[in-house]
Design a binder for these strands. Sequence first.
DNA 1: CCGATATACCTCGCCTTCGAGGTATTAAGT
DNA 2: ACTTAATACCTCGAAGGCGAGGTATATCGG
Lengths: 184, 184
Amino acid sequence: MYRSGMIELSILGFLYDEPLHGYELRKRVAALTGHVRPIADGTLYPAIKRLERDGLLERDLQPGAQAAPRHVLTLTDAGRAELQRRLAEPDEPFITDENRWFTMLAFLRHLDEPALQARVLQRRLTFLTEPASFFWDGDRPLRAADFDDPFRKGLFTIATATSRTEIGWLRETLAALAPRDREA
Amino acid sequence: MYRSGMIELSILGFLYDEPLHGYELRKRVAALTGHVRPIADGTLYPAIKRLERDGLLERDLQPGAQAAPRHVLTLTDAGRAELQRRLAEPDEPFITDENRWFTMLAFLRHLDEPALQARVLQRRLTFLTEPASFFWDGDRPLRAADFDDPFRKGLFTIATATSRTEIGWLRETLAALAPRDREA
DNA sequence: CCGATATACCTCGCCTTCGAGGTATTAAGT
DNA sequence: ACTTAATACCTCGAAGGCGAGGTATATCGG
């Protein structure tokens, strides 16, 4: 089963810390990913319903503190297990797609075992260190110097700089997570 | 009309240079964005059909060089104008979403007027320099130092470093595009 | 001549997300 | 009393994208 829903991961991730109602959830999801892609009600509430239908969360109706009644959402045991699973074995887009990967990073601390956390970081590192290019001339990968226009040059500049930063961070963090690698 | 189709932009962008058949198009789109998100036939061919239906491209059937017959795709005048329009006035996601923005960068050289190119870069710069945070405690934006776990720290580290690089590049390129700004 | 592989295109149903609408409730201003 | 704003939730149709299938043609090895 292919699970690409980024918002579902956010919901599970935020609720793992504490029960929240939908409106508060919307604000948190908006802060995390809405910067890049605003969150619509028509996306959030159906996603909550899906998770409820699948038994991953329960809702408890409470009189509204400031306005209409709230549906306080709590993760079930199945929901907590599901977050663990999605963090431990994310589908490819969660490794390769920047937006989804950032969502992973936001909640990876919830993953119980450091070894599993390390495996996820390792997957990202492998992806980032794979040789790749945006453009090809037949079999020859084109580089920044092959282009005259500043925009494609910029594309390479930015992509290279950002992946270098992240690779550095990944190596450091992996070393800290598994300091006994050399002995194993 | 909301036009968020990233693949449509790629198709228009690649065909702006030269006519291509679908299979070759698929390879180029895969190199550009497939690294992050693989391109499916079920995405590409319907997108081509949409563009053809809207009169943005024409197809010319040719006997296949190595195999089955090819549909060579050529942009119409309307198609060329449409790319200009989409590059000059991109919808928000093309400014804020990294994947879409990279696609913009790949084809921005096709945009005729430097002033229009500069306006697009300026929009991206404005977006990147807006104050933002991934997490909040009420009204207070949280920072890297507010978190114990290395993953959320990393999230901030990477995001900050990458946007700093890009902001630098944007300022340089904007200066080069409009050297007479101070006199105007 | 047979099968494998690469080329080349297509359809279908599904899922996620989106935008545009809607319904209430409460608090604060006028 | 009336409006506005903020809170809080919902439905619906449409669109983009996905994976899993399918159909051919040409080349090359065995």
